[in-house]
């Protein structure tokens, strides 16, 4: 006990000062990443969102939902049932399908290219995931402040949560950062 009363001041001081330095270092990191442009990888920005085959084949009837939104097993499930794709025939020739498969596997939410979208794997069974993005736990959580009836279903310019691009202005480029959200007839989403 004698020893501890001697070293308590330097020890306590070290703990306190490191707490403050670490606690405030988030600002420095934030500032650095926005100054050096590294912030682009920080946000909800899907890598390689501009793949031409993906845009062409998946983006004709609905927006080309970024690969990073669903895990590999979900994409596999979708690709093996393209002839009955949510009650539509979306069948592809084998070569195109394989090309898409490799792109989607490489960028899925449980792949190394997921980036911040890795959070979309939270709370789901990776082996048996939902295949609808809107059924993902993380999707639900991120949209729990959105009034489903007023802002989505009964909003003439939205209609459904599947219409990412209705509110996420840069959804087709794979960008889902909060400052790109503009809910039609309700305005910008500032939270």
């Amino acid at each position: 006990m004698k020893l501890i009363t001697k070293i308590r001041w330097p020890l306590g001081g070290a703990l306190l000062s490191s707490a403050l330095v670490i606690g405030l270092s988030g600002f420095a990191q934030q500032a650095q990443s926005s100054w050096w442009g590294e912030g682009h990888e920080e946000g909800y920005r899907a890598k390689n969102a501009g793949n031409p085959t993906h845009i062409e084949e998946c983006g004709a009837c609905h927006i080309a939902y970024p690969a990073q939104l669903l895990p590999k097993a979900a994409w596999q499930e979708i690709l093996s049932n393209l002839d009955n794709h949510f009650d539509e025939d979306a069948s592809l020739d084998d070569a195109t399908r394989d090309e898409l498969a490799s792109f989607l596997m490489k960028h899925a939410s449980d792949s190394e290219n997921a980036g911040k979208f890795k959070k979309f794997t939270r709370g789901i069974e990776l082996q048996n995931p939902p295949i609808q993005i809107t059924e993902l736990k993380y999707f639900e959580r991120k949209h729990d402040e959105i009034n489903h009836q007023r802002m989505v279903i009964n909003n003439p310019d939205v209609g459904s949560f599947s219409q990412c691009q209705a509110c996420h202005e840069k959804a087709e480029q794979g960008i889902f950062d909060e400052d790109t959200v503009n809910i039609p007839n309700f305005g910008r989403w500032d939270d």
Partner: peptide, 16 residues
């Protein structure tokens, strides 16, 4: 970053 590191700081403060 800001949120997480503020949290780390608080953890250390509580430990202190």
């Amino acid at each position: 970053n800001i949120h997480v590191f503020a949290g780390y700081g608080i953890s250390l403060l509580v430990l202190f």
